[in-house]
Design a protein around this nucleic acid. Structure first.
Lengths: 347, 347
DNA sequence: CTGAAAGCGCTTACAG
DNA sequence: CTGAAAGCGCTTACAG
């Protein structure tokens, strides 16, 4: 593969001039520039980004360590991160932690070894040593979706509290009183927050959230299935199950179907994170939608700010409830809606 | 960040010895090795992969240019590629072409500039100039899922021909005769092959595939919706629509629902590519499942072979039909099944 | 406007 | 077993 030396020889100039011509440096004569460009053309030369990175100490690359790529929510997040990064002249390398702390650590290490300019992470657990170390060492970093309290890093996330209140209002309006939740790992902020929000919203209606109605999941489908089976085995099963992410909702659907039961007749279902398929499940699933694209964009912008040495602000965007039919329907009438803005999807 | 020089100073040895100690070179005295390791520990030293790559001319990185990450099939493919690559000591950088040739080209260029050791690609179109050039130049490369005829690169893909025959047998057994297809772009191999396979299978039953029953899609949901609307507007709409990928099936579902029609009562639906959600759609969707994990694994292995300078064999794995309820059900009896192995999913 | 030279952080013959 | 030195392909003060 042709190097800058070959181009210089072909153009009859020094490598310095080639470098300047290619990097748009002002002090290059039009003649020299033309000969360099011609040489580049005939040689099919492409600058070696590895060499450039070593010299300039920047890779124009962002690392994204994500909890689980197979989760449509994170897939979309990754996509919007890449889009925004590309618009700003960066590439992104995605590391899939698969909800495993050890894998998360592996990716953080690999990314750091590659000297990425900045790191976007949605921590699987309380934070791996490598990651905390990087944050302390001043590696430009921002948390997306999930975060770690006490670490001085901007957080870009969505606040589902209001949407969860809307959901509980919706369920209460439908006459449901026994409401259960499939929680995410307590080690994650989203795992904790969604349970807290749910509990608070229930309390506003004087409804309890007994321990038996809190199932411990891990954000993956299998746990949703197991937890739902447990709920179904209870002497008094819940009337509605709220899954803290879409994959656990999928698992819940699996479990209900395996028992030959039906949603919402036998048990209602709602989910955190909305995905296109929820429109077509039997029945369409009531869900809380995050502004995923905006989150990805905001996260990249905050990170690029940090890379530039500026502060990089935290951003919190609201999530919103999308009511469908999986929790039952009011008898011919519009259900009681909370005052907050609630979008009804087209049936 | 500490460099190898700092470690050498701390350990009281030369940088050469540090390098040897860290790379497991045999001729390093136990004493020197111990001091190096200690220095590494106290300094928190991590080798700079960029510098190493420049020196060794290998990045231990694979590039994967994929048609559309948001398509669950490709998400799973990407995941298995990363898993296998990691097992073999490689990182992977994913470039999402989003079914756009220009984006595909952008990613191929970026990846090549970064001097990835090998390239895995699922071409969006007939092949971008940059990509064909790379193939000709001898860049280790393998095609996954989609490929480009006439280019001398191993192909790892799945053959859906038998599964499509099984599908048509299933539909025919259910009494359906007017069968339509939402095709992928003719510029892609999978776009063409699936139509061909469908047409041939129909021919075996003396069934025609009129032009009006071939809708041109682009593997994205929007096109599935538009094509399906067109089918529904026909004086004689098809009895079953076969979508050439899962996203277009989603669009078809959207279109049917928007008309207030029902699957399979008003129109049947089948899809190429199976995904977990198809079990829970209303009704569960009959689909052709690819051995996605195996494809990803095989592709990485073939690529690593090429990187090592060996041949790297093409691999073709069979897809299989998974019958569910979206094309209707036999009246209480088991539908006529073709002799090929067909898995029935649990209801 | 241009070139010679230094240097980014490594690895690896070469010599001892 | 060890170190001095060259070199990977760039960029960028420095001098002219």
């Amino acid at each position: 593969m042709a190097s800058i030396k070959d181009v210089a020889a072909e153009a009859g100039v020094s490598v310095a001039t080639v470098s300047r011509a290619l990097n748009g440096h002002p002090s290059v004569s039009p003649a020299a520039r033309a000969r360099v460009l011609a040489a580049v053309e005939t040689l099919g030369y492409r600058p070696n980004a590895v060499a450039r990175s070593l010299r300039t100490d920047q890779t124009r690359t962002l690392g994204l360590v994500i909890s689980d790529v197979m989760n449509p929510y994170f897939t979309e997040l990754a996509r919007s991160v890449e889009e925004e990064a590309r618009a700003l002249g960066y590439s992104v390398i995605i590391g899939n932690a698969d909800e495993r702390p050890d894998l998360q650590d592996h990716h953080v290490t690999t990314l750091l070894d590659r000297r990425i300019d900045g790191l976007l992470v949605s921590p699987t657990d309380g934070g791996s040593p490598r990651m905390l170390e990087a944050a302390r060492a001043g590696t430009p970093m921002v948390f997306v979706d999930r975060w770690i309290p006490g670490v001085d890093v901007p957080v870009v996330r969505s606040d589902g509290r209001a949407a969860v209140r809307d959901l509980v209002a919706h369920l209460h309006g439908l006459g449901h009183r026994r409401l259960a939740i499939i929680a995410g790992p307590a080690a994650t902020t989203t795992g904790r927050e969604r349970v807290d929000a749910f509990r608070e919203a229930l309390a506003a209606y004087g409804l309890p959230l007994p321990d038996a109605y809190i199932g411990q999941g891990d954000f993956q489908a299998g746990s949703g299935r197991r937890v739902t089976e447990g709920f179904l085995d209870l002497p008094e099963p819940p009337e509605v199950v709220f899954a803290a992410d879409n994959l656990m909702a999928l698992g819940a659907l699996d479990a209900v179907r395996a028992r030959g039961l039906r949603v919402p007749e036998d048990i209602g279902l709602a989910a955190f994170d909305d995905i296109p398929w929820f429109l077509h499940t039997g029945p369409p699933v009531t869900a809380i939608a995050q502004p995923t694209r905006d989150l990805g964009r905001a996260a990249v912008r905050a990170l690029v700010e940090r890379i530039a040495g500026r502060a990089g602000a935290s951003v919190t965007l609201p999530a919103r409830l999308v009511v469908r039919r999986s929790c039952g329907e009011p008898d011919g009438t519009t259900p009681h809606q909370s005052p907050s803005p609630v979008r009804r999807s087209t049936p």
